[in-house]
Design a protein around this nucleic acid. Structure first.
Length: 475
RNA sequence: GGCGACGUAGCCAAGUGGUAAGGCAGGGGUCUGCAAAACCCCGAUUCCCCGGUUCGAAUCCGGGCGUCGCCUCCA
């Protein structure tokens, strides 16, 4: 029984979609004004696992992810660089999407850009104006926050509390300092679009209301993003959607699912602080498999304190999983179940994995079961239990499908994987030479050759059935 | 100041009432020509501190201390 934490209620609740068998989900993506860092990969990877699990549980999932391709920051940066806003946005978005693919994140059902959704945006704003919830002022359009009785219900804030610590920029056009912009009037040199209430561009929050509405209708079962979006972004999005669609049947969100921040030196990674570790660089140095697993090694709601050492340690553990895969990938399906405690660990792995994911997508617990399974498999294999090969193979494929775990070679076409590459011919020749030396009993020479092979970046392991060459693991 | 989350072994991290998963590091073994890999054994009588509820609490309640996030663009 799947249960999901909901920010609005602050509790884990049994999951049910409004329409049986179909889940509508909306996740806030990025504003591509600069290169993405690890923090931007977190929601993508987390939601990839969430989507996989929902599908595994029999749901059809319609997932919408947005790209905010027009906003203040983007306009500033583009102007500074002397390039069009759209060009800057597309360049960064393309890099981000390429990184996501390397991380094995499946494409969402709809990848939606703000600038491609002006129609629904304008429609929503018109409705809000007609409702009297919004008002035009100085070429802009604002939402009158005080007209929303339950404003703050999602983020657990009271309007009057918001006024105290304020750092809200004074704006003479606003009736109330807490009101927020739905539409920003045209300014010279900035992108703008026509609208009945004047040329301009959309405010930050309205795009998400519009895109969710366009692709998913008035009801969103799961709405996600980083916790830093809870206020004001999601709060504002929520109230404007409800106010605009109120006439239709029960607009809303079933569960607000927010992932924790990735921090470094105890501080949130952030593009504006410039303290983020570039994602592409991280993938380059540690491999996509390690980066992905690292993001899943902590529960999605907890903060994740990034550490280079932690990433390396995790990669080392992952190596054990990869080695098991090497040993079992060609095994035939297991014909019989295995008994005993170790046998159960293998037989029941899929169930245990599902149970962990059912529990608010507990990926660290899932990884724990994975390692239990690996140890049991290795031991049974060492004891000569032939069925263990088939069960282990099945289990690794189950983990691959559920978590997007990357196995060397991928296991199957189309699966996420690290590119597999064998040793170069020169190394292969050295290995052959070493085998000869060993057979001849010349161990000094064999050891010298092993050092040479190691220096070339490869490690030789002598197994019963001959030497195995693997890329040298990082020290 | 307000709102929210969190504080578990050297490090990372599960665990929301029944007596502490898992990973990494470390020590000792088995195997091996030697290694590597794999496997076995060893580590918190204890879960930030102090009270309370309970037959029983890391888990619930109250109070401290500390950390992080949001209140401003932000995954």
């Amino acid at each position: 029984m799947l249960a999901v934490y909901d920010t609005a209620t602050g509790t884990v609740r049994p999951f049910a979609s409004r329409v049986p068998g179909h889940v509508t989900a909306y996740v806030c993506g990025i504003t591509p004004y600069a290169e993405a860092h690890l923090g931007h990969a977190r929601p993508a990877v987390v939601w990839d696992v969430i989507t996989r699990h929902l599908q595994h549980r029999g749901y059809r999932v319609t997932l919408v992810v947005n790209i905010t391709d027009v906003d203040d920051r983007l306009i500033e940066r583009a102007a500074a660089a002397g390039v069009p806003v759209a060009a800057l946005a597309e360049e960064n978005a393309a890099r981000y999407l390429a990184d996501m693919r390397r991380l094995g994140v499946e494409d969402p059902t709809y990848l939606s850009r703000a600038t491609e959704n002006l129609e629904p945006i304008v429609t929503l704003i018109e409705r809000l104006l007609a409702n009297g919830v919004a008002y035009p002022a100085g070429g802009d359009v604002y939402l009158r926050v005080r007209s929303i009785p339950d404003y703050g219900a999602l983020s657990h804030r009271r309007l009057d509390d918001l006024l105290t610590g304020v750092r809200i920029t004074p704006n003479p056009h606003k009736e109330d300092p807490l009101d927020f912009a739905l539409w920003k009037g045209e300014r010279p040199g900035e992108p703008s679009w026509p609208a009945p209430f004047g040329r301009g561009r959309p405010g930050w929050h309205i795009e998400c209301s519009a895109m969710a509405w366009r692709y998913l209708g008035s009801w969103v079962d799961l709405h996600g993003g980083g916790v830093d979006l809870v206020f004001p972004h999601h709060e504002n999005e929520r109230v404007q959607t409800r106010a605009a669609l109120d006439a239709e049947d029960g607009p809303g969100v079933g569960y607000w699912v927010h992932n924790g921040m990735v921090t470094t030196s105890g501080v949130k990674m952030s593009k504006s602080l410039g303290n983020g570790t570039a994602l592409s660089d991280l993938i380059q140095r540690h491999g996509a498999a390690a980066v992905r697993a690292y993001l899943l090694s902590v529960h999605y709601r907890s903060p994740l304190e990034f550490s280079e050492a932690g990433m390396i340690e995790l990669a080392r553990g992952l190596d054990r999983v990869a080695r098991l895969w090497d040993a079992v990938q060609d095994a035939p399906p297991a014909a019989a179940p295995l008994l005993g405690e170790l046998g159960e660990t293998l037989s029941q792995f899929p169930m245990r994995l599902d149970a962990a994911l059912d529990s608010d997508f507990n990926t660290p617990a899932a990884l724990g079961h994975l390692f239990d399974m690996v140890r049991a498999a290795n031991r049974l294999i060492a004891e000569g239990a032939l069925v263990a090969f088939g069960l282990a193979r099945r289990n690794l494929l189950v983990a691959r499908d559920a978590l997007g775990l990357m196995l060397p070679g991928g296991g199957q076409a189309g699966a996420p994987h690290e590119p597999a590459s064998g040793p170069p011919a020169a190394v292969t020749a050295l290995v052959a030479e070493r085998t000869e030396a060993r057979t001849a009993g010349d161990f000094a020479r064999a050891d010298a050759l092993r050092r040479e092979i190691y220096a070339a970046g490869w490690a030789v392991e002598d197994r019963r059935d001959g030497p195995v060459v693997r890329p040298r693991s990082e020290a």
